[in-house]
């Protein structure tokens, strides 16, 4: 359960990313976050796992405040939240398996992780997860030899290996071509349905939000302007969300 209260984010130079956001996301939901670029989607997601600190307001994850958490407590919260980035954010010189194992850092003994000697069970788990996202057998390939779609699946495997309660995805399809985009979308849906992991993903394509979202949240100028099922997201409403959007 994610609870967001009066969330506000202002960057230095008075750029307002989030004006005032109140919402709750129940465990197991699949939420598509839409809005024009600059609407605050990335800032919102990054406030949820404490990658950035909000200017005002609060974020709670399973009853535990994320806002203001530091050190060990923040790490424990983050370990339960997977984050998938638009541009994958992999270590390009490391192998597929090594990148995936980074998702286990919150679970394995720190000393062993520092010398790169991961427990056998964690390696087996990483291989199984890579198999599941369709990358079986590519374990020892350097990730910079993979296609964009494969790289994004490595990143999803990394997030899944955290055994997260929540998976946040920041426009995970924006760097991929349309055919790959629906594959990744289906993967996120499967993760949501089979593992019961809450998924919150921002999307730049309205069609994907309509096709895959169970709940759509429309952001504009740092405010929620739509929150409801995809079938009530008429063209008129969509036009309202995106109208006057900066290119």
């Amino acid at each position: 359960m994610i609870r967001v209260r009066a969330l506000q984010k202002v960057y230095p130079g008075a750029t307002v990313a989030l004006r005032h956001i109140d919402l709750e996301i129940a465990a197991g939901e699949f939420v598509a976050l839409i809005g024009p670029s600059g609407a605050g989607k990335s800032s919102f997601l990054r406030c949820l796992n404490g990658l950035i600190a909000p200017t005002a307001g609060e974020v709670e994850m399973d009853g535990e405040p994320v806002t203001g958490a530091t050190g060990e407590r923040l790490r424990r919260i983050r370990a339960r939240i997977g984050f998938v980035f638009q541009q994958f954010h992999l270590l390009r010189r490391l192998t597929v398996l090594e990148n995936a194992l980074i998702g286990r850092l919150g679970h394995v003994p720190q000393g062993r992780s520092l010398v790169g000697w991961f427990p056998v069970a964690d390696i087996a788990r990483a291989r199984a997860t890579l198999q599941r996202v369709g990358l079986g057998g590519l374990w020892d390939r350097r990730v910079d030899t993979l296609s964009g779609g494969q790289q994004q699946r490595v990143a999803i495997a990394r997030a899944l290996l955290q055994e997260p309660r929540v998976l946040l995805a920041d426009e995970p399809m924006a760097s991929l071509d349309p055919a790959l985009a629906s594959t990744v979308m289906q993967l996120l849906r499967r993760i949501n349905e089979e593992d019961g992991i809450t998924v919150v993903t921002s999307l730049h394509v309205l069609e994907l939000a309509r096709a895959y979202g169970r709940r759509v949240i429309g952001l504009r100028d740092g405010r929620v302007v739509y929150d409801g099922p995809p079938d009530q997201l008429t063209d008129a409403v969509a036009a309202q969300i995106f109208s006057g959007a900066q290119p």
Binding site: R75, L91, I102, G106
Partner: peptide, 17 residues
């Protein structure tokens, strides 16, 4: 940033990121 987002410690971020 991605390594830090997994809940890794500062040393782990240094080692793996």
């Amino acid at each position: 940033e991605a390594v830090a987002a997994t809940g890794a410690t500062a040393l782990q971020v240094l080692r793996w990121g």
